[in-house]
Computed example of a mutant assay.
Amino acid sequence: MSKSISNIDWMNQLENAIRQFVKEKLELIMKEEIQTFLEMEQEGTSNRRNGYYHRNLDTQYGRIEGLSVPRDRKGEFQTQLFTPYQRHTGWLEEAIIKMYQSGMSTREIG
């Protein structure tokens, strides 16, 4: 019995580590995006960084909470990773469509 509990703890730790890794990489990509945006596209303007806002994003790796999304003073920067009000990636819709195509009923999918 104690083995199964430790396996569950190990799986939870692994899932948390994966989510933390994905969060760090997404934030790194967005930092590079805003840096490129301000250097290339906003050259010669007074536009610059203006902190971050936080959002949750549901991914196939689980919910990533408190994702720091950079913003600029003029509000013109938009990351290419997701759309402005997107709260989950497209993996859920794809999974539902595949289940329906494989013959599952809508009640079973629900």
Rank of each mutant, 00 (worst) to 15 (best):
residue 1 M to C: 09
residue 3 K to E: 06
residue 3 K to W: 07
residue 4 S to M: 04
residue 4 S to P: 00
residue 5 I to M: 09
residue 5 I to P: 05
residue 6 S to D: 13
residue 7 N to K: 12
residue 8 I to R: 09
residue 9 D to S: 11
residue 9 D to A: 14
residue 11 M to Y: 10
residue 11 M to A: 07
residue 12 N to M: 07
residue 12 N to T: 08
residue 14 L to A: 03
residue 14 L to T: 09
residue 14 L to Y: 10
residue 16 N to F: 03
residue 17 A to P: 09
residue 18 I to Q: 09
residue 20 Q to W: 05
residue 20 Q to F: 09
residue 21 F to V: 09
residue 22 V to Y: 01
residue 22 V to G: 00
residue 22 V to F: 04
residue 23 K to Q: 08
residue 24 E to G: 07
residue 24 E to V: 05
residue 24 E to C: 06
residue 25 K to L: 06
residue 25 K to S: 00
residue 26 L to G: 00
residue 27 E to H: 02
residue 28 L to M: 10
residue 30 M to Q: 03
residue 31 K to V: 00
residue 31 K to Y: 00
residue 31 K to M: 02
residue 32 E to V: 13
residue 32 E to Y: 14
residue 33 E to M: 07
residue 33 E to C: 02
residue 35 Q to I: 10
residue 36 T to A: 10
residue 36 T to D: 15
residue 36 T to G: 06
residue 36 T to R: 11
residue 37 F to D: 11
residue 37 F to R: 06
residue 38 L to S: 10
residue 39 E to V: 10
residue 39 E to K: 09
residue 39 E to N: 10
residue 40 M to P: 03
residue 40 M to E: 14
residue 40 M to H: 14
residue 40 M to Y: 12
residue 41 E to R: 06
residue 42 Q to H: 01
residue 42 Q to N: 04
residue 42 Q to C: 03
residue 43 E to H: 05
residue 44 G to A: 04
residue 45 T to G: 02
residue 46 S to L: 02
residue 46 S to W: 12
residue 47 N to Q: 03
residue 49 R to M: 02
residue 52 Y to H: 08
residue 53 Y to L: 01
residue 54 H to L: 14
residue 56 N to G: 15
residue 56 N to W: 11
residue 57 L to E: 03
residue 57 L to Y: 08
residue 59 T to I: 00
residue 60 Q to P: 12
residue 61 Y to N: 10
residue 61 Y to F: 14
residue 65 E to C: 13
residue 65 E to M: 09
residue 66 G to H: 08
residue 67 L to H: 08
residue 70 P to K: 05
residue 70 P to W: 02
residue 71 R to P: 00
residue 71 R to N: 03
residue 73 R to G: 13
residue 73 R to P: 15
residue 74 K to I: 01
residue 74 K to H: 08
residue 74 K to W: 06
residue 75 G to F: 05
residue 76 E to C: 10
residue 76 E to P: 02
residue 77 F to S: 08
residue 77 F to D: 14
residue 79 T to N: 09
residue 79 T to F: 09
residue 80 Q to M: 13
residue 80 Q to G: 05
residue 81 L to Q: 13
residue 81 L to R: 10
residue 82 F to R: 11
residue 82 F to P: 04
residue 82 F to W: 15
residue 83 T to E: 12
residue 84 P to I: 13
residue 84 P to W: 15
residue 85 Y to N: 15
residue 86 Q to M: 15
residue 86 Q to E: 15
residue 88 H to K: 14
residue 89 T to W: 14
residue 90 G to D: 15
residue 90 G to P: 11
residue 91 W to E: 07
residue 92 L to Q: 09
residue 92 L to M: 12
residue 93 E to R: 02
residue 93 E to P: 04
residue 94 E to D: 03
residue 94 E to A: 05
residue 94 E to H: 01
residue 95 A to G: 03
residue 96 I to N: 12
residue 97 I to A: 10
residue 97 I to D: 11
residue 98 K to W: 06
residue 100 Y to E: 05
residue 101 Q to G: 11
residue 103 G to P: 04
residue 104 M to K: 14
residue 105 S to F: 08
residue 105 S to C: 05
residue 105 S to W: 07
residue 105 S to L: 04
residue 105 S to V: 11
residue 106 T to Q: 15
residue 107 R to H: 14
residue 108 E to H: 13
residue 109 I to C: 12
residue 110 G to Y: 07
residue 110 G to W: 11
